[in-house]
Design a protein around this nucleic acid. Structure first.
Ligand SMILES: [Mn+2]
Ligand SMILES: [Mn+2]
Ligand SMILES: [Zn+2]
Ligand SMILES: [Zn+2]
Lengths: 161, 161
DNA sequence: CAGATAATGACACTCCTTTTCATTTACACC
DNA sequence: GGTGTAAATGAAAAGGAGTGTCATTATCTG
């Protein structure tokens, strides 16, 4: 899925959108009383620019390019704070462990490429009528839902041709 | 969510349906060349009768009531075989680790009670038109989806009144 | 009943994540 | 610009979930 030696995608997708995210995440950290360190800036920059969900170790490896002294513990602590502020979210992998990705904006769900790991959000799903019928049949008070789609992204489809 | 001292639910929900499941799972194991041991019968009985997804440790604790010498490793090995035969499936918890539950029949999805952990399957979801529109907009070839609903089951709603 | 082999439990190990603690760093205040 | 204080860091150790190894035990076949 994710290739250790292929970090091009990270900065290839670094657009104004990602730069804005980067700045707003730094502000968000600062407004919550957290300090801005070199390490933290580096990790935030990587996460805000990534088109893939990243595991803690992947983020650790990417982070050490900027901050060679970086420790894995700091990665986990940074992820914890960004998640607490609602800036990133965990993505559950079929295998078991977590990856991390910028959080959804409002009511969005994930679309994941099973070949390269690319993650995109989509919106516009309206499950309300369906959920009402499930509620009626089951007696449950349905309060939340969790929807993820899996498939092949445009690039991976092209690559396969 | 799940109370260590409250195993009533397990046998309270033991109905003919669960008894049938129990017998068919044993047959399934036998037909695949696996042997029927006392330990295995006990674990299968618990899983087939459970209305909740169980963690490995929960299953371990329940199993030791019947087989005090039971080891946690045996629990994992039994879960592995039952999953391999398609009789149970993993349920991903928001927290991270897995729980295990009888497998879905055909195209079904899960409905989980956030208060007591009760798990029920439902069917009848038709996301095809929605998934087509997502595919069009994203360029993804959407091949699979993962849907879980969360809410309060009838019992927990009554209990709250 | 006896032999072949699957299953078990104890132990040790790996992997991911969290805790602890001494040191370093950022930021508020003067 | 210094200075003090509390937050952040990295190293090391601990924790929890899950897997591998191996000698012993139990199941099934004939
Ligand atoms: Mn939705
Ligand atoms: Mn479906
Ligand atoms: Zn892809
Ligand atoms: Zn409930």
């Amino acid at each position: 899925m994710y290739n250790e030696n292929d970090f091009h995608y990270l900065y290839a997708t670094m657009n104004t959108n990602a730069t804005d995210l980067y700045q707003s995440w730094l502000s968000s950290l600062q407004n919550s009383g957290y300090r801005l360190t070199e390490t933290r800036r580096a990790l935030v920059e990587i996460l805000a620019a990534s088109s893939h969900a990243l595991s803690a170790v992947e983020l650790y490896d990417l982070g050490r390019r900027e901050c060679p002294r970086l420790g894995l513990v700091t990665v986990y602590r940074t992820l914890e704070k960004l998640e607490e502020l609602g800036l990133i979210q965990r993505v559950h992998q079929p295998g078991g462990c977590h990856m991390y990705l910028r959080a959804a904006q409002g009511h969005q769900h994930l679309l994941l490429c099973t070949a390269c790991g690319r993650a995109e959000y989509f919106d516009g799903d309206d499950l309300s009528t369906f959920m009402n019928s499930v509620a009626d049949q089951s007696g449950f008070d349905v309060r939340d839902h969790w929807l993820q789609l899996f498939g092949l992204c445009q690039q991976c489809r092209d690559h396969d041709l």
